[in-house]
Design a protein around this nucleic acid. Sequence first.
DNA 1: TATATACTGTACTGATCAGTACACAACCAA
DNA 2: TTGGTTGTGTACTGATCAGTACAGTATATA
Lengths: 188, 188
Amino acid sequence: MPREIAERGDAIAALAEVFREHGYSGSSLARITQQTGLGKGSLYHFFPDGKEEMAEAVLEEVDRWFNEHVFSPLLDPGTPERGIERMFETVDHYFRSGERICLVGVFALDDSRNRFGARINRYFSAWTEALAAALERTGLTDEQASDTAEEVVVGIQGALVLARSRQDPAIFSRTLRRLKRSIPTISR
Amino acid sequence: MPREIAERGDAIAALAEVFREHGYSGSSLARITQQTGLGKGSLYHFFPDGKEEMAEAVLEEVDRWFNEHVFSPLLDPGTPERGIERMFETVDHYFRSGERICLVGVFALDDSRNRFGARINRYFSAWTEALAAALERTGLTDEQASDTAEEVVVGIQGALVLARSRQDPAIFSRTLRRLKRSIPTISR
DNA sequence: TATATACTGTACTGATCAGTACACAACCAA
DNA sequence: TTGGTTGTGTACTGATCAGTACAGTATATA
């Protein structure tokens, strides 16, 4: 198996952008082939179960990426403040300061929700819980930590919706700054 | 013209639920006829330009409803606090305490965004500006008012995304309570 | 160079898509 | 009852949908 892994990985990255911009049912095979540059032959070679497997693979990759770059740093031993600050930086970069939207959020609202419900749920649970754990280690109580974590994840998702709706990425940047200020031991 | 208006209005209400649950491209004519109980003949009689006109009519109705029940009370002379409290109550009721999602938010994230971009933008602008105006009248500065208004609208949208994603409407209720507390003259 | 496996383009399938045509039914005014 | 408008079911259209089949090309190892 000479080049399988690398190419499948590239395919997933390209697929992610298609699904992110058009949702699940808005991403026709025709659009996918056009936007990724991959023909049907290649797509069905990498993803024999078709579109559903493509979306599943994309969600899995997003999950993996966030685990590595966002959730893990939050759960890292060492100063939790560092992990939280890192989270804000990574998130700002990942969502291109509000010009990109959240693929998991897109799937949560469109009709693919039922197909991928479990994974969508897990993604947001993992994020909220990792952040809550870090906040607890900064000295907050259980309740304060989980309330604040929820506030932050809610704020990020809402800001992405509004930034996209109003075509104004600054909404996202302002929200990130405000959310950061709402965390006592981080605010600067 | 005996029954046109009443029936078209009923059609719009039924259509709204289809689009809300399945997005634009996820709402096929087959699903629409099935879920609304209206045949193609009726649908194309009321909406000669087809699906796009149906979605347009639904967005227009949502716009009209929010103007009447949410934005107007905020802009009403009299105590702004009353209008703001009314907004929270109405929004809580409209979104069924987190069990319903925002149709405009759904359209903002899926591929219908380009078709209806202007209307989506206007809806959120109108909401944010009406709330900011009310907040100013409670004594906040221009900047405080528009920041807080943005925070509230962002929080509502984010909470709807998360409540749906995690299948936990309580996220929405908690968020509404928190947002209310963040407004100095309302908090109780 | 030989050969096995990985990959890809193309032509096809049946199902479903949005939209059209039109006959017919329900209704209201005269 | 008659006539005109409003509303509706049904059968169709061509386009597009996801998915399949398979021959052909590229590549890696031996």
